[in-house]
């Protein structure tokens, strides 16, 4: 889809109508709107989660803390915030593969992954991944081994989940920083493996 320049379509007009009325009534702070938007466009995104994963791959004790108390372990790296107050990390292994969804809306761990991509919020993903997860993962390019147990996690309350993907083979010599580059957003949702684009 990319970026649209669409100042005269209905949602744009409606949004500008609401914004201008709220400003005139002294209710809306324009600077707050600007700052919130730039925070999620520029500061908070999946690089945060990638740092958490790379640390867990590099430091076994950190990984243990992450799996026992994800919120605290993530905060050790200076990462916290709204929609990440109560985190649980799910470890993907050769035996178990976890995938995350919010069937009811779009709950997602903002501090580690940023705002969710469109497909994660789509009715197609939300409806289908709980009932035919292997088919959905195959469509998205992830073929699981038949022997892997698949688990689907529906973020229906106030826990926010991130997946700790399996460390790719042949990466023993990589530094933590180099490992960070292998960790994709999709691997932390559970619809891809790390080290693949």
């Amino acid at each position: 889809m990319g970026e649209h320049d669409d100042t005269v379509n209905y949602p744009s007009l409606r949004t500008r109508a609401i914004e201008s009325l709220l400003v005139e009534k002294g209710i809306l702070a324009s600077d707050a709107v600007d700052r919130v938007v730039s925070t999620y466009e520029e500061d908070i995104g999946p690089l945060n989660g990638a740092r958490v994963v790379a640390r867990a791959w590099s430091d076994g004790e950190y990984k243990t803390r992450l799996l026992e108390n994800a919120t605290g372990a993530i905060a050790e790296l200076g990462i916290s915030g709204m929609q990440g107050e109560n985190m649980v990390a799910l470890e993907n292994t050769s035996e178990v593969h976890n995938v995350v969804v919010c069937t009811l809306c779009s709950c997602y761990p903002w501090p580690v992954l940023g705002l969710p991509p469109y497909w994660y919020k789509s009715p197609e993903y939300r409806a289908r991944v709980v009932v035919e997860p292997r088919a959905v993962l195959e469509e998205l390019g992830l073929e699981l081994d038949d022997s892997q147990e698949l688990r689907v996690w529906d973020s229906s309350a106030d826990i926010r989940y991130m997946v700790l993907p399996e460390r790719p083979a042949g990466t023993d010599d990589l530094s933590e920083e180099e490992l960070t580059e292998l960790v994709t957003r999709d691997s932390m949702i559970g619809v891809a493996r790390a080290g693949t684009s």
């Binding site: 889809m1 990319g2 970026e3 649209h4 320049d5 669409d6 100042t7 379509n9 949602p11 744009s12 949004t15 500008r16 609401i18 914004e19 709220l22 809306l28 707050a32 709107v33 600007d34 919130v36 938007v37 999620y40 466009e41 995104g45 940023g114 705002l115 469109y118």
Partner: peptide, 14 residues
């Protein structure tokens, strides 16, 4: 992109 248009940015921020 995080947002697909300017109005999406404003809706989120508002």
């Amino acid at each position: 992109p995080v947002f697909h248009s300017e109005w999406e940015r404003r809706v989120f921020g508002i």
